[in-house]
Design a protein around this nucleic acid. Structure first.
Lengths: 124, 124
DNA sequence: CTGTATCCATGAGGATACTG
DNA sequence: CAGTATCCTCATGGATACAG
């Protein structure tokens, strides 16, 4: 049994799922894997997300120590998000999900255009 | 770009997430990894889930070809759920999530009792 | 540029009772 | 035993306008 901030988990798989069990967090992590990003960059790359939701999700990920937020007090304001060390370690999780998804699509889906995932998963 | 049942995905990671992006499916898959299970067994092992929700989630997983449902027309009725071949291949995803979760707990949580995950992840 | 503040629609999932 | 059928609550996340 594990406890994290008064939340109980029977299994560490649940701990991991709790990090990205919603519509957007995994996508945010994905886009930060290879490069740090500004708020606007994330907003443009994950174009379907609203500003409000992006803000909420970034805060949640920051509070769980998955991402780091750094403010540059320039004008206009510049804020850069990056993965923490433990956040970077999610790369292997993403990688296995990436590979399984490919296999699943081969069996049950269709590929309408080439890979649009720009992330280099083999890095590290 | 991938298409599965009229649903579009930019990345295969999203395909995988879509399989278990809710409160219960990953737990159900977890409990089927090593052994096939009857409805009642699942219901007891995942004790917090309601019958209705378990039914719904099993149907969803079956429709996505992650699990197989077999009916034995005995009295009383016997229904056994098992992972399909592609479902079994989720083992590696579960394993990487399991391992990451352990690391995360070491940094940000506490272990209140020993491992209650009874699944043998190294199998196969 | 990087957020906040409101308001609102939707659907997942819980409680409970019932059925083949 | 293995589900269905209702009803209901609550939180996620979308739309939009505003602010430091």
């Amino acid at each position: 049994m594990y406890v994290i901030n008064d939340k109980e988990f029977k299994c560490s798989v649940g701990v991991t799922l709790d990090i990205f069990n919603d519509k957007w967090k995994l996508s945010i992590i994905w886009h930060l894997l290879d490069n740090d990003k500004r708020f606007k960059e994330l907003s443009e790359e994950i174009s379907e997300i609203t500003q409000k939701t992006l803000t909420v999700k970034l805060k949640e990920l920051e509070s769980k120590n998955i991402i780091h937020r750094e403010v540059f007090p320039e004008v206009p304001l510049k804020v850069v998000y990056s993965l923490t060390p433990i956040g970077q370690k999610l790369r292997s999780v993403l990688e296995s999900m990436f590979n399984w998804g490919i296999e699943y699509v081969k069996e049950h889906g269709t590929i309408t255009s080439e890979n649009t995932c720009e992330v280099n998963l083999s890095k590290n």
